[in-house]
Design a protein around this nucleic acid. Structure first.
Lengths: 228, 228
DNA sequence: ATACAAGCTTCTGTATACAGAATCCCGTAC
DNA sequence: GTACGGGATTCTGTATACAGAAGCTTGTAT
């Protein structure tokens, strides 16, 4: 736990930047890495002391963490680390699939030649990472590709929702994260082709199947890993 | 402005319930009814005094208002009432259509006989209100019908996103709110029939067209009203 | 007249302090 | 041994206090 704390503390003295943001990031980190366990009661004073700040920024961070689905805030009782359930994971994946599908449609409608070029560049990065067996780069490339498609779609509201949902989805499968690999990137290539042609129906259909497959894949792995 | 303030103040002494919620509600009310204008700088101390509370609950309310899209929070500068744009309205309507469409699909897959019965009851309520020319009841029935469809879909994540997006959409067209009327309720009837049959594809298709039409309708009215 | 800079004012961001609710612990009664 | 109740404790929710940044005002120089 201490590393995260010192990180936040040093960030504090370094800049006059909003402290609650550092707390927000630190707490997500602690939740993701398991230092704070699902259902655990988060006592504001404790967090404040550990992070070297007052209760105020902690409270504000907790509020945002609630709206982002990381903690539950029970009135007069405080914050509790949200307990993920299989059901909620399914719901998140379902919603994400719908949003990403819409995003692909928008991208196909709006993509300019330079956008397509950039998409192919990201695709190449992913394929290279796959060939090198560099998992970290692979995950980064995947994230970048999806994010860029969303940005091409040009719908800020959509982009924000996708980012929100994706972050939450990621949490569930964090401990067993394992990219799907070759198949996924073949699907990406087909997707980019459809976007390049401006074929919105085909692009959205490919994305729908793509995200649904990814969801199924993750759930299968989770089941195999015996994750709650 | 004063009514909202006294309301919040009285709510304060009345219960030990979370004060920030009252502030949150009061501020949305003030934004919707135009007391707080788009772009306006919201000074925490002023709001706190007017509402008869300290800055603390105000700050926490502002945070949530930001994540819900009502205000923009600029670091070291404070909160500003969010300025709605035509573009953002279009994006919200687009996202809402996608989410509602998915909701209709889920409802068709899950609907039990008693759910269908309840849907028809809500439909009847809407038709009655339409016949009576009771706009308020009509809007309420419409909201209830859509909400019930979402609840039948049984996806809590989806439900929350829809509720969030719908609230924001409503703001844009608040000043010129005017239900679409007969056509909309004919579409509702077809939708319920599809749900009753468990025809997910048809249900989602009807909902897609329905929400898109409603969106177009609202935009047309807004344009006619010369709204920014 | 305009551009610039120093000082002041205002406001946010953070910390500390206080009041009351919820919970827990322990003793007592049955 | 178990159920109940009172008191202490802990924690949240709210209020007040303080430090520093951002913006405005005013005066000066070009």
């Amino acid at each position: 736990m201490d590393e995260a704390l010192t990180a936040a503390a040093s960030r504090r003295v370094a800049r006059p930047a909003p402290l609650r943001q550092a707390v927000y990031d630190a707490l997500i980190e602690l939740i993701i890495n398991g230092s704070l366990k699902p259902g655990q009661h988060l006592v504001e004073a404790e967090l404040a002391e550990h992070l070297g700040v007052s209760r105020q920024p902690v409270r504000e961070a907790l509020q945002r963490l609630q709206t982002d689905g990381w903690v539950d805030l029970r009135p007069a009782q405080g914050a509790f680390v949200h307990s993920p359930t299989e059901e909620e994971a399914t719901q998140l994946l379902s919603v994400r699939a719908v949003l990403e599908t819409h995003s692909a449609r928008g991208a196909a409608q709006n993509a300019k030649p330079e956008d397509v070029e950039q998409l192919w560049a990201l695709q190449q990065e992913g394929v290279d990472a796959l060939a090198d067996g560099d998992v970290e780069r692979l995950v980064a490339a995947n994230t970048a590709l999806h994010a860029f498609i969303t940005s091409v779609a040009g719908n800020a509201v959509l982009a924000e929702l996708i980012s929100q949902v994706t972050r939450r989805v990621r949490w569930y499968y964090m401990p067993i994260a394992k990219p799907r690999g070759k198949d996924a990137w073949n699907e990406h290539a087909q997707l980019i082709e459809a976007i390049a042609k401006g074929d919105a129906d085909r692009a959205s259909e490919i994305m729908r199947k793509h995200t649904e497959r990814t969801g199924e894949y993750r759930k299968a792995i989770a089941a195999a890993a015996g994750q709650d």
